[in-house]
Design a protein around this nucleic acid. Sequence first.
DNA 1: TTCATAGTTTGGTCCAGACCTAAATGTTTC
DNA 2: GAAACATTTAGGTCTGGACCAAACTATGAA
Lengths: 226, 226
Amino acid sequence: MKEGPDIAQVAACLGEPARANMLLALMSGMALTAGELSREAGVTPATASGHLAKLEASGLVVGEKQGRHRFYRLADPDVAHAVEALVTVSARLGHMRTRPGPKDGAMRRARSCYDHLAGSLAVDLFEHWRTNGVFGSLPETFELTRRGQELLSERGIDVTALTKSRRPLCRRCIDWSERRHHLGGGVGAAILSLALNKGWANRKDSSRVVIFTPGGEKRFVAWYSL
Amino acid sequence: MKEGPDIAQVAACLGEPARANMLLALMSGMALTAGELSREAGVTPATASGHLAKLEASGLVVGEKQGRHRFYRLADPDVAHAVEALVTVSARLGHMRTRPGPKDGAMRRARSCYDHLAGSLAVDLFEHWRTNGVFGSLPETFELTRRGQELLSERGIDVTALTKSRRPLCRRCIDWSERRHHLGGGVGAAILSLALNKGWANRKDSSRVVIFTPGGEKRFVAWYSL
DNA sequence: TTCATAGTTTGGTCCAGACCTAAATGTTTC
DNA sequence: GAAACATTTAGGTCTGGACCAAACTATGAA
C-alpha cells in the first residue's frame, strides 16, 4: 500500500514490557541465556521462550545454542542504535522508572553501549583522538588513518586482526547522556575489552554501568592520551 | 522495578500500523491535519483521533489548533531520529510495506512528497546543489546562500516571493526509497510546479507517481545542473 | 440564521496476543 | 542407565485495545 519499510512490525516487538526489558538487558552487549532473560523480564520461562522466538523471527536478536543453554544477543549494532534512540526519547519525556540516584552519576561517566564504551569518558576519548588525526573523515562508519593504526598498535590493539572482520572498524555512535559522539565498531569494542582485561574497570553485573577504579581511570586516560 | 526509561511505552505507540503510518507521514517535517493523517493511516477520523490523542499524550507529536483544523507534527528531532533508527532496522530486515510492482520503478524515480519532488531524481538534484554550495549549513530547515539565490532566480524561480511566505524556504526531507535527503520547503514546491508547468512531467492521477517524459527528464537535469 | 465541514466523544464489538500450567524434548551430571 | 536442569511446545483463559457508527462540539461559509 504505502512505500517504505514496515516499522510497525519492529516497533511492536519492542513495545511489549517483557520484550523491552529483555532487550534492555541485552544492551550491555553480553549474551544472556533464555532463563536469565525470563527472570529479567519477570515472566515464566515458557512465556519468555515465546517472546524470544518472536524477537528472533523479527531479526532483533540472534540465539545460539550451547549445551543445554541457549544464549541470546542483539542481532547487530543497528538494533542497539534503535534501542538507544528510543531510550533517548522516553528519557526526555520523563518516562523514567527510576529517579536519578547515586548510580546515575556513574552511568553518565562510563557505561557499555552494546559492546563498546559510552559516557563522558568515552566521549572525551573520541574527541581527543578525532582532533589528533586518528580518524579520516567521519561518516557513519569510517577508517583509521595510518597514524591511527600505528597509535593503536603501539597501545596493544591488534588492528590487522580487526580489519579481517566484516564489522566496520570504527563507527560513530551517539551518546545519549552527552549528546555527542563516542567510538563504536570493532575498535570501540576492543578498547572496552582492553580496559576490562587490564583490570582498570569492571562491569557492574546485570547493568550497563562500567566502574573504573580510581587508579584505573587515570591509567586509562594516560593510555589513550597522545 | 528495573532501572532505565520505559521504552516499552513509547515503542508500543509506534508499534501499531495506523500510528506508525501517521508518524512516517509526519517525517517529512510538515504539519498535517487530523483528517489527512486519518487518510494516510487508512482508518476513520474517529479512530485516528484516538490514536493522535495517544501519540500526543506520549509526547511523540504535538497538536496545534488552527481554525477548525488541528495540525499535528513530530514533537522534536529526537522522535524523528528514533523513527529513522527503526526504519533502518526494519529496512535491513526486508520488512517492506510495498510489494514490488511495475509502478514501483517509476515511483522510485520520481514522485510527489506532498507538494515537492521525491525519488532518486530529487535526491540527485539535492546532492548536486548541496555539493555546489547552493545551501549553507543543513539543519532541519535552512536558507539559500547568495549564490543559491542567484542560481534559482536565473532558473526562473521567484525567490523573493517565496521569502515573503511564512513557510521555510528550504527543508530537508527524508526520501524513503533512497534513504537520503531531498529538498522540500518553498523552493522544493516551486521546483515541482515548475517541472509540471513546463510540461516536463505529469502527475499520474490519484497516485503520487510523477512521470517525466523522456525529453522532459533530460531538460530537467540540464535545468538544475550547474 | 442555517448548512457544511473538521474533529472529538461515547458505546459496544471483536480479535490478537500475553500469560499461565502441564507435558514434551534435549543435555549434562552422577 | 536415572535424575536434574534448561528450554520449547501445546492447550486454554482472559484482557487490552483497535475499530466503527453515531451523536456531539466547534468553526467557517452561505
